[in-house]
Design a protein around this nucleic acid. Structure first.
Length: 443
DNA sequence: TCTGGGGTCCTAGTGCGT
DNA sequence: TCTGACGCACTAGGACCC
């Protein structure tokens, strides 16, 4: 899908069609998740700091992501892909590999792809781009070249001609660090990777990375399309608007994250053996600490206690900007966690408490003062007004919130009204359906 | 400019049992 | 009983992806 989050916002909000739209975290440490093509013209791109994006493109609409509706639309698109082939490998909400050979569709693959693009547009109002090739590597590169709203086919025999002149960063697995390694060795293009030879790449990058990169540069990629990839870990993390320096607050946040993580584990019907705590300090240095339990668990108390213990062993005196809690080593079942319980009993007796008695470490930590919530209403959020109907939050501040009343089916921008933030007639709402609406900006 | 959130994979070091 | 080799599990960090 082309500029997916931003395209959904433009399709949902007629007043934003053809205008620069940036979706991402709106806090002081937010980054851009997706920028519309109108915003990209100004140099705004994914993963850029929001503050930087605002300087480059001050007139764009800055919105929080609405994952609920993105997921709904993603489900519609994935269902259309499933009509083409039973073998689909989703990469994210807006991207998937489809193995056409696994399907029984008659006809030219190019025609299949064009029909699929038309079906996606009819069903969602959004544009999709397709890369058609004999391997995942080439299909991915072709789909990038096809954006926005296009189709690129890599004909057999033309693979090297396509790959050779491309910069090394085009290849899957080459990020800033690997690109810098290669640059120091005088390797800038895919052709130069192929020419360097496998032994040289293994020497530069290690065995696994060097070998796979050399094969890819030669156009050799026989990775299969794999449906239903198994999840290997579940984690949650939060970056704080200002660094945490108070240990009690750190503990409180670790508890909160451990709870969220355990809820997600349970929601997925999984349990795991290894609890991981991630701590990013004031200077952006990142530490992880992990502990492997004797049996898988999805018990919030066990995850919380382990995470707390791991976090407390780390020096956080300089300040903490991010905390995370994760569980890996996942199993499909939950065992009675007898070992953890036994360990808990032992700790209690060592602390001089009767088993079952609450220890100091278990005492509920008083929540620290809530950081001031700048907005009860977040830009982009869906709302319903008792009198004016459905709309979305355009902005808020100094006790006021500005709503634009429009729905996806409107042909032009809706009217704008401002209310008190606590106006009882105003409430949050579900996103209105998008289905079949003509797309705005071509992605 | 100053760097999110949720993941995967790889590598290297270490401890432990055989 | 000691020692080295080996394989495995675990831990931590880094790089990468969307």
């Amino acid at each position: 899908m082309d500029a997916f989050f931003a395209a959904v916002e433009q399709a949902s909000k007629p007043s934003l069609r053809g205008k620069p739209v940036v979706v991402g975290g709106l806090g002081p440490r937010g980054v851009v998740a997706t920028a519309s093509y109108e915003a990209r013209v100004h140099g705004v791109h994914s993963a850029m700091a929001m503050a930087h994006a605002r300087r480059l493109c001050p007139n764009a609409a800055y919105l929080v992501p609405r994952f609920g509706i993105y997921r709904q639309i993603s489900d519609i698109v994935m269902a259309l892909l499933a009509e083409v082939s039973p073998l689909i490998e989703p990469l994210s909400l807006d991207e998937a590999f489809v193995d056409l050979e696994a399907g029984d569709l008659a006809g030219d693959p190019r025609a299949v792809a064009e029909r699929l693009r038309a079906d996606i547009r009819a069903a969602t109002g959004l544009t999709a781009s397709v890369g058609l090739a004999g391997s995942k590597l080439l299909a991915k590169i072709a789909s990038e070249q096809a954006k926005p709203d296009g189709l690129v086919v890599v004909e057999p025999g033309t693979e090297r001609a396509l790959l050779d002149p491309l910069p090394v960063r085009t290849l899957w697995g080459v990020g800033p660090a690997t690109a810098e390694h290669l640059r120091r060795a005088g390797i800038l293009t895919v052709a130069e990777i192929a020419q360097a030879g496998e032994p040289e790449l293994v020497r530069l990058l290690g065995k696994a990375h060097g070998s796979s990169l050399h094969a890819m540069a030669a156009g050799l990629d026989n990775r299969p399309v794999v449906a239903d990839r198994d999840v290997k870990s579940i984690s949650v993390e939060d970056t704080f608007d200002t660094d945490l320096t108070d240990r009690a607050r750190v503990r409180f946040e670790i508890d909160r994250l451990a709870d969220r993580c355990a809820q997600r584990l349970r929601g997925a019907g999984r349990s795991g053996r290894t609890v991981v705590v991630k701590i990013r300090r004031y200077d952006f240095s990142t530490l992880t600490r992990s502990e492997t339990l004797r049996a898988p668990t999805d018990d919030p108390a066990v995850v919380k206690e382990t995470a707390r213990r791991l976090a407390e062993a780390v020096d956080t005196t300089g300040g903490v900007r991010l905390l995370g809690v994760g569980v890996s080593g996942l199993a499909d079942f939950t065992q009675e966690d007898l070992f953890a319980q036994a360990a808990q009993t032992l700790r209690e007796s060592e602390a001089g408490a009767e088993p079952g008695q609450v220890t100091p470490a278990e005492l509920p930590v008083a929540p620290p003062p809530e950081p001031e919530r700048a907005n009860r209403w977040l830009p982009g959020q869906d709302v319903e007004h008792a009198e004016h109907g459905a709309g979305w939050v355009q902005g808020s501040g100094v006790g006021r919130v500005t709503i634009r009343f429009e729905v996806p089916s409107d042909s032009g921008p809706g009217r704008v009204r401002t209310f008190a933030v606590d106006d009882p007639a105003l409430s949050r709402a579900e996103p209105p359906a998008l289905t079949g609406h003509p797309s705005p900006a071509g992605g």
